[in-house]
C-alpha cells in the first residue's frame, strides 16, 4: 500500500458516498445514469468473487464489501425506491455495446483462461467504459448538478491516482499488471474532457454546462 493507492481508494470511496448522499438527501436520482450504476454493480460483483477464495487483508475485504453493498444499494435506490425520479428518457446509452465487446475481449486478452480470471478481466475492461452512459447523459442534457460533478470528479480521479500507484509499484516493487494499467489509462482518458470542464467551471462556482 502506497500513498497513491490509498488516495485512489479514498477517492473511490468518496465518489460512492457523495452519490449516495445526493440520492438520499434530495430523495432523487435525477441526472444519474442508472445504466452506468448497473454496469458498476456488475463490475464489483464479477471482480470481488475472490472474497470467497482469497483473503488479502481486513482493509481489502472491508472495502470490497462496501463497494459491493453500495453499488447494489444504488441500483436499488434508482430502480425501486426512487424510481419516479429516475430520468430514464435521457439515459439511453446502449449498454450491450459495452458489455459484449468487453466480454469478448476478456476471453481473448487475459492472464489465465480460468473462470475467476476471465471474470476479473471482464470487470477491469467493463469498469474502464462503465461511465460512458453517465457522460452520454450529461452531454445529452447539456448540464450536470454540482453534486453530480463532484461525484464524477472523485470517480475519475480514483483511476488516475491508481496510475500513479502503478508507476510507483513498477519502480519500487517491480510489479505491474498490464491489463489493469492499459484499462486504467483508457478509463482515465475518458474523463479528461469532463476534468477540463470541472476545473474551469465547477471549481469557479459555476454550474457544469456544456456549450450549446
Amino acid at each position: 500500500m502506497n500513498i497513491f493507492r490509498l488516495a485512489g481508494d479514498l477517492s473511490h470511496l468518496a465518489a460512492i458516498i457523495i452519490l449516495l448522499i445526493k440520492i438520499w438527501k434530495t430523495r432523487s436520482c435525477a441526472g444519474i445514469s442508472g445504466r452506468s450504476q448497473v454496469l458498476f454493480a456488475i463490475v464489483f460483483i464479477t471482480r470481488y468473487l475472490d472474497l470467497f477464495t482469497n483473503f488479502i487483508s481486513a482493509y481489502n475485504t472491508a472495502m470490497k464489501v462496501f463497494f459491493l453493498g453500495s453499488s447494489i444499494g444504488t441500483v436499488y435506490l434508482m430502480y425501486l425506491k426512487f424510481k419516479a425520479t429516475y430520468d430514464h428518457n435521457h439515459d439511453t446509452f446502449r449498454i450491450e455495446f459495452l458489455l459484449l465487446p468487453t466480454a469478448l475481449l476478456s476471453l481473448v486478452l487475459n492472464h489465465e483462461f480460468s473462470v475467476m480470471e476471465i471474470l476479473w478481466t471482464f470487470s477491469i475492461y467493463l469498469e474502464s467504459v462503465a461511465i460512458l452512459p453517465q457522460l452520454f447523459m450529461v452531454s445529452k442534457t447539456g448540464e450536470a448538478e454540482s453534486i453530480t460533478s463532484h461525484y464524477l470528479f472523485a470517480l475519475g480521479s480514483y483511476r488516475g491516482l491508481y496510475i500513479l500507484n502503478w508507476i510507483y509499484r513498477y519502480y519500487f516493487e517491480g510489479f505491474y499488471d498490464i491489463i489493469a494499467i492499459v484499462a486504467g489509462c483508457v478509463q482515465t482518458i475518458l474523463y479528461c474532457d469532463f476534468f477540463y470542464l470541472y476545473i474551469t467551471k465547477v471549481l469557479k462556482g459555476k454550474k457544469l454546462q456544456l456549450p450549446a
Binding site: R5, R47, N54, N60, K64, S114, W120, F175, D177
Partner: peptide, 10 residues
Amino acid sequence: GKAAPDHDEL
C-alpha cells in the same frame, strides 16, 4: 511465476 497475478488491488 504464476500466469495470473494476485489481485491485491480494488
